[in-house]
Design a protein around this nucleic acid. Structure first.
Ligand code: SF4
Ligand code: SF4
Lengths: 164, 164
DNA sequence: GGTTCCCGGATATTTCTTGTCCGCGTTGTG
DNA sequence: CACAACGCGGACAAGAAATATCCGGGAACC
């Protein structure tokens, strides 16, 4: 079981966006995190398609959160990047081989699939309980209240200096 | 997030093995489920390395559970096949870029990594709660008490007829 | 001793992730 | 209103990982 590392970038980007009311360009977000610009843009597009962020084009364009950070859950971001398909994909092997179960008995998933679905559900619940705002607040506390202020300052500064 | 489909084969194989006190060859397990024999053998080797099943060589060899089915949890099987590394791998991007956090502040994982770890823990807990014996019992109930008996009959029969 | 079967690694094939590119639409400006 | 600049969006290659397969030992049984 593996999670795309783009999830980490997307979560960090959302936390950063929650600190700015103006749109932030993909170039800035990539530079801030030291990651390839073009690839981050691809993931941001996925967030855009999921309705989590809104992209504005043009000279002063960029990305911004569409909803308040407190209403965006981690699960939404994870699913936007990694897809909504569950980790366990049942290939219905019980319908194959010499003891094949007839299809009419396979209407509802079997015990194995049910247990896996329950585990997935527990995973979803844990991620739903945490919002982007929670993350921003927790990161701020971890850094003694300087992290988010630094981000806001850097965003304001880069908007002036870098395009020059 | 994706789970190797070998997990499904391994779980089915364990349930099957729980119905037989004699060792069952990899060839039989593969035939019963209609899956490639060689690849299933590779996964069974992983189960063997994890101590879940014991392989006996020789003419009447095969695989058998080392412990009672009630004491083997789904999580053990999943981790034996899919590995124990967590789904979310933190690449410490906060230590990169213009706002890099110094390493001495990164001793404990940040809020994002903590939330992901909590979700993973919930997933583990759900899988630990279900044993192979539970699965066998549930599958038996789903089939009105015929599935496991059919498996036992097929195993006994194939041991006579097929090698001939 | 012959046979059967499991173990382990080496290897080919396919799929997915990662990474990069340029066209199109949008925005601000003259 | 036409122009030019800018960034988003999806299409396109390279790399990694999973999937699937094969064969040479070694062990147990007959
Ligand atoms: S639903 Fe259950 S029995 Fe059917 S293939 Fe999936 S795990 Fe196997
Ligand atoms: S520990 Fe937190 S801040 Fe550091 S890279 Fe992981 S998610 Fe980002």
């Amino acid at each position: 079981m593996k999670l795309s590392n783009g999830v980490e970038w997307a979560l960090h980007s959302c936390v950063t966006l929650s600190q700015s009311r103006e749109p932030v360009q993909a170039t800035r977000l990539a530079e801030l995190h030291g990651i390839p610009r073009a690839y981050l843009a691809k993931h941001l597009q996925a967030l855009s398609r999921a309705g989590i962020v809104h992209a504005t084009a043009g000279q002063v364009g960029g990305y911004a959160l569409t909803r308040p950070a407190a209403s965006v859950t981690m699960l939404e971001v994870v699913q936007a990047i990694d897809g909504i398909e569950p980790a366990y994909r049942c290939t219905e092997i019980r319908q194959r081989g010499p003891l094949a179960v007839p299809a009419e008995q396979c209407e509802r998933p079997c015990a194995i699939a049910r247990a896996m679905a329950a585990a997935q559900e527990a995973w979803y619940r844990a991620l739903t309980a945490v919002s982007i705002a929670d993350l921003a607040a927790a990161i701020d506390i971890d850094s003694d209240g300087t992290a988010m202020a630094d981000v806001r300052r850097w965003l304001a500064e880069s908007r002036r200096s870098l395009p020059g």
